[in-house]
Design a protein around this nucleic acid. Structure first.
Lengths: 336, 336
DNA sequence: TGAAGCCACTCAAGCGCATTAGCAGTTGGC
DNA sequence: GCCAACTGCTAATGCGCTTGAGTGGCTTCA
């Protein structure tokens, strides 16, 4: 800035005013300063900006999953890619960290806060008993919870929520329409809030329709457990005629397990994946799946965080209900 | 720090010396200062540190891939997870950015450099004609190229290289041992350096063994192209008896395509995936694949970058040659 | 006993920017 | 014709930390 000031023949303050669009300089001077800055390829030092109270121009994102379950999930990269798209427009950086567990994640937030490293954070995988919202509230760190419940209890926290209940209802609708009355939901991690919402909704829907042979089983999202649970439930008698899996990986693993047991899909058993991805289109038969736009999910979350950083009040916004894309893995229930 | 200084009854400078392990304070004072700092939960402001010449305590990572091809790849999350593991020990942050293409990526490096946002960067997907090493050299930004060639031409750039040639040779070894003489290599993006290395090695190996019906076809890594190319080459006459795919996604798609054409795996055609992941164990038959430790790859790269930041000279280090894990998708060549 | 040297510490400057107070010069109002 | 208000700019301060240049008291040795 000193260079720019010298070349433009003004003081450093004038340069600051000019480049930040503040009043205090004439438009001709502003234009001249802008031109010189452009010529010199000047960019403000984020460190200096941060130090003089402007914030770090960075938002944080922590992924608390065991390293080995990271790989297969297509959701997060898509999400991050959407987040980036919005952040990049404002030249905000994304500080990314992988943590062991939620406690570790909390430690990361504390550190980031103390180091003034981030202006806000995006929180994923909200849990039933979740210490993170309270912590972030306490620290006063603006945050958006991705995939939370639509009730805002914390003042500083916005929520972007997906309508799990609506989606589950629509899946049950479709399956009962096809004649299925024995359904097993092979859910994800029991501690996650959306797992519990899906389980609760399924139970409510079943009750409403008088279906007695409907239940949920929780897993760790892995292909191994997906296959194991599939084998176990299909071994029961009578076996279920429809399976709902909480992610694509388990569905594919379940498909293979079903085939090994001699079950034809969809004649003997119907399969629905709660996550649509290339995977679902790569196996035979192709998997019927709930399609949602993960990148758009990320974009929405990032926009909410920007609003929060701009001083807007926290709020809860919904993203469109995922739609069931029927493919080859669902069909009419076999008559018993 | 002012608070700490006051409570410990020393000057701010003394606090700085004490907390940074520099000489200039007695051990008793140092301990006292440390204790007070701990009590107060003090963490240095990265902005202030950066401003006084200490670097940004951050390294950058840009992924230049189209948003829609991001999702399926299991490699990157594993890699990043490994990188994190090493960076976290030193409390270095990872600034992550998704870019449209290499030009965009270069713009990001320029911006980061001008803004003093990162101390170094990790570069992935090195290309045949790659502008990035020159740019980073010019900017003087320490960098590690992940998956580059083992020749160091740029002074500031270290390289972590995987022995693609050795791996390709071992695959060809195994396939010829099984009697395969007609092999098609379904490669990835033609612009990537490792794609070209694999293609060149395959050609050399074929020549050395006098195999005339061996060739490579490039793709965009997608399941769609993997399936399409598989259909095309298996439609030739005589069709190849072995296919080598540059990633897991294409292999799975190829497997489905082969099945549709009535080819049995491995009786009619053998399939090898150049990427091992849960995917490879989820389909029937399970896929023979080249296994490498992606997280370890990331750890090695991060360690090299740390060495560079510590002032060590740039160098090239290799990671272990990926090993072929034989599963159900490879078998003896069918007699023609 | 004095000079030299060292230890443990303090002082002050500065990193690059934002911001507040202040200061000439001009304009407008009565 | 004088004061007030406004315009367009400069000077100075501070953000939280590091660091080189001191400084005072102590030890050591001639």
């Amino acid at each position: 800035m000193k260079d720019i000031a010298r070349r433009a023949g003004v003081s450093e303050s004038a340069v600051s005013f000019a480049l930040n669009g503040r009043p205090g300089v004439s438009e001709t001077t502003r234009a001249r300063v802008r031109r010189v800055a452009e010529q010199l390829g000047w960019r403000p030092s984020t460190a200096a900006r941060a130090l003089s109270g402007e914030g770090a121009a960075t938002v944080g994102f922590v992924l608390a999953r065991a390293a080995d379950t990271l790989g297969v999930d297509s959701f997060f990269l898509q999400l991050v890619s959407g987040i980036q798209e919005v952040l990049a427009e404002r030249h905000l950086g994304l500080l990314f960290q992988v943590a062991e567990d939620v406690a570790d994640e909390c430690a990361v937030y504390r550190r980031w806060w103390a180091e003034h490293r981030v202006d806000g954070v995006l929180v994923v995988d909200p849990r039933a008993e979740d210490p993170r919202p309270d912590l972030l509230d306490e620290l006063g760190l603006p945050a958006v919870v991705i995939g939370g419940a639509p009730d805002v209890r914390h003042q500083g926290l916005s929520t972007v929520w997906a309508d799990d209940a609506g989606a589950m209802a629509s899946v049950v609708d479709e399956l009962t329409r096809l004649g299925h009355r024995r359904i097993v939901h092979i859910a994800g991690l029991p501690g996650l809030a959306h797992t519990q919402r899906r389980i609760a909704t399924l139970r409510a829907e079943a009750e409403r329709r008088g279906l007695t042979e409907v239940r949920s089983v929780t897993t760790d999202y892995s292909d191994a457990e997906g296959a194991a649970v599939t084998r176990r439930v299909l071994g029961g008698s009578p076996p279920p005629t429809a399976l709902i899996y909480d992610n694509d990986v388990m569905t594919v693993a379940g498909l293979a397990a079903a085939a090994e047991l001699g079950f034809r899909v969809p004649q003997d058993v119907s399969l629905v994946s709660w996550e649509d991805s290339a995977l679902c289109r790569m196996v035979t038969p192709r998997l019927s799946a709930l399609s949602r736009d993960s990148a758009e999910f990320g974009r929405t979350a990032a926009r909410e965080l920007l609003a929060l950083l701009d001083g807007d009040a926290a709020r809860a916004v919904g993203v469109p209900v995922p739609r069931l894309t029927g493919r080859g893995s669902t069909g009419a229930a076999r008559r018993t």
